[in-house]
Simulated scan of single mutants.
Amino acid sequence: MTRLRAATESDAGPVIAIWQACDLTRPWNDPRADFARALNHSASTIIVAEQGPDIVGTAMTGFDGHRGWIYYLGVAPDRRGQGIARQLLDHACDWLKLRGCPKVELMLREGNPAAELYKHLGWELQPVRVFARWLA
């Protein structure tokens, strides 16, 4: 059985391990800082999926007042195919709905094979390009 809950500071190690196992981290982003910022901000959370004592999935979500966003959605490679990603996405959407969020989006790097999963779950590819600028 899979149980979903909000992450706590003590979950940083296992959550980041899943992010790394799912190839979600990048050298220019400090995953520990990302984890801490999400937990310490009222407009974001990290949801974890547990099976027994193990964290087997994670999703970071936040609401900027206009859109909800989901980041770092990952399921441990040996636990895929059990519906955990769907549960995490649904839980993240429910968290956002409770905050009055009208629409949720997620970003996926080119070539990420999870694109097929999102299509299967009813997510629609959007015709947008993302621009970025470092503030630090």
Rank of each mutant, 00 (worst) to 15 (best):
R5D: 07
R5A: 08
A7K: 02
E9W: 06
E9C: 08
G13H: 12
P14F: 04
V15D: 12
I16K: 09
A17L: 11
A17F: 09
I18G: 00
Q20T: 05
A21N: 03
A21H: 07
L24I: 07
P27V: 00
P27G: 05
W28Y: 15
W28R: 13
W28H: 14
D30L: 01
P31S: 00
D34M: 14
F35R: 09
F35P: 10
F35S: 02
A38H: 09
L39N: 09
N40T: 07
N40R: 08
A43D: 14
S44M: 06
T45N: 08
E50V: 02
E50G: 03
E50R: 00
P53D: 14
P53A: 10
I55D: 11
T58C: 14
A59Q: 09
M60D: 10
G62C: 11
D64C: 09
D64A: 04
G65M: 02
R67V: 09
R67I: 08
I70E: 04
Y72V: 00
L73S: 07
L73K: 03
G74K: 02
V75N: 06
A76H: 12
D78R: 02
Q82I: 00
G83E: 10
G83I: 01
I84V: 13
R86C: 12
R86E: 10
Q87F: 03
L88A: 10
L89C: 13
L89A: 08
D90K: 05
H91L: 05
H91T: 15
D94E: 15
W95I: 01
K97R: 15
K97N: 14
R99I: 11
G100Y: 04
P102S: 05
P102M: 03
P102Y: 01
K103I: 10
L106V: 07
L106M: 14
L106R: 07
L106K: 03
R109A: 13
N112P: 02
P113H: 05
P113F: 06
P113W: 06
A114G: 05
A115R: 15
L117P: 11
K119T: 15
G122W: 02
W123Y: 07
Q126M: 15
V128I: 14
V130M: 14
V130H: 08
A132H: 08
W134L: 14
